[in-house]
Nucleic acid binder design. Structure first.
Length: 427
RNA sequence: GUGGUAGUAGCUCAAUUGGCAGAGCAUCGGGUUGUGGUCCCGACGGUUGUGGGUUCAAGUCCCAUCUACCACCCCA
């Protein structure tokens, strides 16, 4: 008989183990508490959506749609996709459930897993987790600024120093005009472009702006800048956003290379970089977002201005680990009950239940074990008190109370157990 | 999708030129029939990621493959 093959997680997927949970809980709680304090409501959308939702919103020419989606046919023959991000789903829910009839703006947050079929790397997995927060129904620059402010507040609360990289890509109209100019700037220089940029000039010219190839960077410096080609409306909006950021005293940097790959963005776009990350090169941006006034219309709703952002939880957690941020493992129990013999085991169950009902944090062991072993366990749990219930105690209806720090122990009649525990633990 | 580095016990890692697969931690047992933290002794644990090849002999060399990590690409 050959040993069966052991299974392992498939590529790009990983387990979050109990020892990492305190850190995860810390991060998620911080995000969600901040969102609640800022007036956001929790929403939960499905992991699986109709494929068209993402194709239309994220954009057919984006890498996400072209090669990164987990898409398959369900048994009814429909094409469905594991969500690669939240924004499209949340906007779909907003439209589907008539949330436009709620007082505006509607502020929603969600935490959960997203899926992209990419080559795994540091800070990049095929299943990853995001915290996302969206403001739907406000066109005001104040909404953009508050969105940025929330992302900053969360990361600051977590103890990370970050700088917001901000840019504006304008309305669709002004962007289209700019892209035209950009193309005509690059057209005569085509033969100097790198392979990737040659592809990008057709599919997604904006992305040429953050090519890292030396020649392309040199050309980019002379290329028309989107900031200079914004229409009046976009320009005013952007100026106002920056005024708010100044007023909120948020550390930001204007970065004309932030263009965002997703089709639905318009006007304000931003990324959040850790302060000590040179160009966010190592783990990528901790988060990103912007305004997406056109999305509702794309998804068949009324035109609805909206903006929001998402944080990559794995990246935030990696950063916290890099900074050696300590979250202490919570002390789980105050009392351990050691039992010896079958009869004691049966009675132990009831005693433990009784104490749990009184809100004592108590545990005992389910393996056959010596008293020595059980005391070792008690010690590892770090409990203050170990109760010992052996055959002798069972027969005379008593129990031993052992105080772990000084090692002293005392036999007390069972009916007096609670009073004695209260004296020692709740005095 | 492209290029590079790596994979040995649950974890961290040894193994000389190709020559008997090892240690610490953890787990379990004993020293102590019912007493923890320190200590001592012992046991368990491996098809060296997987599959082929070269060789008298492969953890070590070659090929393929999987996975992780790094750099592109892209993004949170």
């Amino acid at each position: 008989m050959s040993k069966k093959r052991a299974f392992q997680t498939i590529r790009g997927m990983r387990d979050v183990l109990p020892q990492d949970m305190p850190l995860w809980k810390f991060v998620i709680d911080t995000c969600e508490n901040a969102a609640c304090a800022y007036g956001y409501s929790r929403i939960e959308t499905p992991l699986l959506e109709e494929s068209g939702l993402f194709v239309r919103s994220v954009g057919e020419d984006t890498d996400i749609v072209k090669k990164e989606m987990f898409t398959f046919q369900d048994h009814g023959g429909d094409s469905v996709t594991m969500r690669p991000e939240f924004t499209a789903s949340i906007m779909r829910a907003y439209i589907e459930h008539g949330m436009m009839n709620q007082p505006k703006p509607v502020k929603l947050f969600e935490t959960g897993a997203c899926f992209r079929y990419e080559r795994p790397q540091s800070g990049r997995f095929r299943q990853f987790h995001q915290f996302t927060a969206e403001i739907i129904g406000s066109q005001e620059a104040a909404a953009d600024a508050e969105s940025i402010g929330l992302s900053y507040a969360v990361l600051k609360e977590l103890g990370l120093e970050v700088v917001i990289q901000v840019n504006s890509i304008g309305t669709f109209e002004s962007r289209r005009a700019y892209v035209k100019q950009l193309k005509s700037f690059y057209q005569p220089k085509m033969r100097y472009l790198c392979k990737d940029c040659l592809a990008r000039i057709k599919s997604n010219p904006l992305r040429m702006l953050d090519c890292k190839k030396k020649k392309c960077v040199e050309m980019m410096l002379e290329a028309p800048q989107i900031i200079d080609h914004l229409d009046e409306e976009s320009k005013n909006h952007f100026v106002k956003v920056l005024e708010y950021l100044d007023a909120f005293d948020l550390p930001y940097a204007l970065n004309p290379q932030i263009v965002r790959g997703l089709d639905y963005y318009s006007k304000t776009v931003f990324e959040i970089w850790a302060k000590d990350d040179e160009g966010a090169a190592r783990t990528g941006a901790l988060g990103g977002g912007g305004r997406y006034d056109g999305l509702a219309d794309i998804l068949g709703g009324c035109e609805t201005p909206a903006c929001g952002f998402a944080l990559g939880l794995e990246r935030v957690i990696a950063k916290l680990k890099e900074k050696n941020v300590q979250t202490q493992e919570e002390q789980k129990f105050d009392i351990f009950l050691a039992h010896l013999g079958e009869e004691a085991c049966k009675r132990a169950f009831l005693i433990v239940e009784g104490l749990r009902a009184k809100k004592y944090r108590i545990t005992y062991n389910l393996c056959k074990a010596s008293l020595k072993h059980q005391l070792e366990l008690a010690n590892k749990f770090g409990v203050r008190i170990t109760l010992i219930l052996g055959e002798k105690e069972v027969s005379d209806h008593s129990i031993l109370i052992k105080e772990m720090d000084i090692g002293a122990q005392e036999s007390v009649p069972l009916p007096k157990l609670e009073r004695e525990l209260e004296k020692r633990l709740r005095a």
